[in-house]
Design a protein around this nucleic acid. Structure first.
Length: 277
DNA sequence: ACAGGATCCTGGGGGC
DNA sequence: TGCCCCCAGGATCCTG
């Protein structure tokens, strides 16, 4: 599920609920997430106060006193919520941090493509992100960098947008919505774009993501924010999951295809294959 | 360098 | 009601 707008919404929700709270206990389910949980991590967490929560791409870093951090990726179906400890636990809850004042931070993940990892030092944390090779944040994309990355590749725009090493945080929904906003065909090879088209795409990505953050993300199925509520951007989709419906710009029917291994949606007219887009 | 497929998982929806 | 097949907001590894 969660792409940048969803992860950003979760992070903003968690901040007031988590910062200053103390971790009193750690409970882990017997099912493995994408990265194996080490028992030694529990001792590192217990007794610590939460200092800050940050997002990098689709990653969430919960930073504690003593430079310990809990780093979480929500995968496809991850949910990270702060709830009263009295609230019944849903199935597929894989990590529960008991907090003071009877609160709990819960990580639920039906498909278990998500992960939770603890780092003991800032160096470890930085090395982890370094190794991931994450590209810049979409809101900090430099014109020159973006033009050059596109010019250097024959891959489709769709594949480039999904590549976290080129730009961090865009996933399948916002790739399609951004390409529609920019009036560019998802199969266009990056190096075919003229500079003005590359710039248009860069601005489209930022515009779409900002709008989605405003609507608190997209809830298709599993996504919920930091308090367990759904987002609203699924009502704003212009091409994603809109196959057979009229394009909001020109009325042509939206079509679906498969690109870069993912379902892809676009308007064959507005996003026609020509240079003009 | 790049596309495409398989993989890790569970559950929902459609067809029969 | 049940079964079978396909699909899903991600990421990674392998093949050709």
């Amino acid at each position: 599920m969660p792409e940048l707008p969803e992860v950003e919404t979760v992070v903003r929700d968690l901040r007031p609920r988590l910062i200053g709270r103390k971790i009193l206990s750690v409970q882990v389910s017997n099912k493995a997430l994408r990265r194996h949980w080490s028992q030694a991590w529990e001792k590192r967490l217990v007794g610590r106060k939460v200092h800050a929560i940050r997002r990098r791409g689709k990653w969430i870093a919960i930073e504690m006193a003593g430079r310990v951090s809990l780093v979480i990726h929500l995968g496809m179906t991850g949910q990270l919520t702060v709830t009263s400890a009295d609230e019944p636990r849903q199935n597929h809850t894989h990590l529960v941090l008991g907090l003071n004042r009877n609160w709990e931070l819960r990580f639920r993940d039906v498909r278990r493509f998500g992960s939770a990892t603890v780092f003991g030092t800032l160096d470890e944390l930085e090395a982890f992100f370094q190794e991931a090779g994450l590209g810049p944040e979409p809101f900090e994309l430099k014109t020159r960098y973006w033009r050059e990355r596109l010019a250097a590749t024959a891959r489709s725009l769709k594949a480039v947008l999904l590549d976290q090493r080129v730009v961090a945080g865009v996933g399948n929904i916002y790739a399609d919505e951004s390409l529609f906003e920019a009036r560019l065909h998802p199969a266009r090879p990056g190096k075919e774009l003229i500079p003005s088209e590359a710039d248009r795409l860069r601005r489209a990505i930022a515009r779409v993501l900002r709008c989605a953050i405003e609507k608190r993300g997209s809830s298709i199925r599993d996504y919920v924010d930091g308090s367990g509520s759904k987002g609203g951007y699924q009502n704003e989709f212009r091409v994603y999951q809109q196959v057979g419906r009229p394009c909001p710009r020109c009325g042509t029917l939206i079509v679906g295809t498969r690109l870069a291994g993912r379902s892809t949606h676009y308007c064959p007219r507005c996003q026609g294959p020509g240079t003009r887009g």
